[in-house]
Simulated scan of single mutants.
Amino acid sequence: MALFVVYCKDKPGALETRMATRPTHLDYLNGAGLVKAAGPLLDDAGSPIGSMLIVEAEDRAAAQTFVDNDPYTLAGLFESVEIQGWRVGVGSIG
């Protein structure tokens, strides 16, 4: 298993889509068993403008499949998504 950082930026003006899809998105993340940490990216006012996840998956293709099936992705929330391999340098991921 490998760790990946998933960095997603929302489309401008998509807050309504984010909020409407949030319960299904959270159920998906909590049920997948792959997410080590996750949370929204925030603007200076504290409003969500994207998401960042640390995912443990078999490989990059598995991480991509996980992201492709996220309700936020399926709802068209994201303007961009980056998946990058990652490893813990300081601290720990439980």
Score class of each variant (00 low, 15 high):
1 M>T: 12
2 A>D: 14
2 A>T: 13
3 L>N: 12
3 L>H: 13
4 F>I: 01
4 F>P: 08
4 F>V: 01
5 V>S: 13
5 V>I: 12
6 V>S: 13
6 V>A: 04
7 Y>F: 11
8 C>N: 15
8 C>I: 15
9 K>C: 12
10 D>I: 11
10 D>L: 06
10 D>V: 11
10 D>R: 05
10 D>P: 07
12 P>S: 05
13 G>H: 02
13 G>W: 01
14 A>I: 00
16 E>M: 14
17 T>L: 11
17 T>K: 08
17 T>R: 00
17 T>I: 07
17 T>A: 02
18 R>S: 10
20 A>M: 12
20 A>C: 07
22 R>F: 06
22 R>W: 04
23 P>W: 01
23 P>A: 04
24 T>F: 07
24 T>Y: 13
25 H>P: 08
26 L>V: 01
26 L>F: 09
26 L>W: 02
26 L>I: 03
26 L>E: 06
27 D>Q: 13
28 Y>K: 02
29 L>T: 00
29 L>Q: 04
29 L>H: 04
30 N>M: 08
30 N>V: 02
30 N>T: 07
31 G>R: 02
33 G>P: 00
33 G>K: 03
34 L>Y: 05
34 L>N: 07
34 L>M: 10
34 L>R: 06
35 V>W: 02
35 V>Y: 02
36 K>L: 01
36 K>F: 01
37 A>E: 06
37 A>V: 05
38 A>Q: 07
38 A>G: 07
38 A>R: 04
40 P>Y: 14
41 L>P: 12
41 L>E: 11
41 L>Q: 15
42 L>W: 09
42 L>F: 03
43 D>S: 11
46 G>Q: 10
47 S>L: 15
47 S>Y: 15
48 P>G: 06
48 P>A: 09
49 I>H: 11
50 G>R: 05
50 G>W: 12
50 G>F: 05
52 M>G: 14
52 M>D: 10
53 L>S: 03
53 L>E: 06
54 I>H: 00
58 E>I: 07
58 E>L: 03
58 E>A: 14
60 R>G: 09
61 A>Q: 02
63 A>D: 06
63 A>V: 10
63 A>F: 03
63 A>S: 10
64 Q>E: 09
65 T>N: 15
65 T>Y: 12
65 T>C: 14
65 T>E: 15
67 V>I: 13
68 D>T: 12
68 D>I: 11
68 D>C: 14
69 N>W: 07
69 N>K: 14
70 D>Y: 09
71 P>G: 02
72 Y>Q: 15
73 T>E: 13
74 L>Y: 04
74 L>N: 07
74 L>P: 05
74 L>M: 09
75 A>I: 14
76 G>A: 04
76 G>N: 07
77 L>P: 12
78 F>T: 08
79 E>D: 13
80 S>R: 00
80 S>V: 10
81 V>S: 01
81 V>T: 08
82 E>H: 05
82 E>F: 11
84 Q>A: 15
84 Q>Y: 04
85 G>M: 08
85 G>H: 03
85 G>V: 01
86 W>H: 04
86 W>P: 00
87 R>Y: 11
87 R>A: 15
89 G>N: 08
91 G>E: 02
91 G>Q: 05
93 I>A: 13
93 I>G: 05
94 G>D: 09
94 G>H: 05
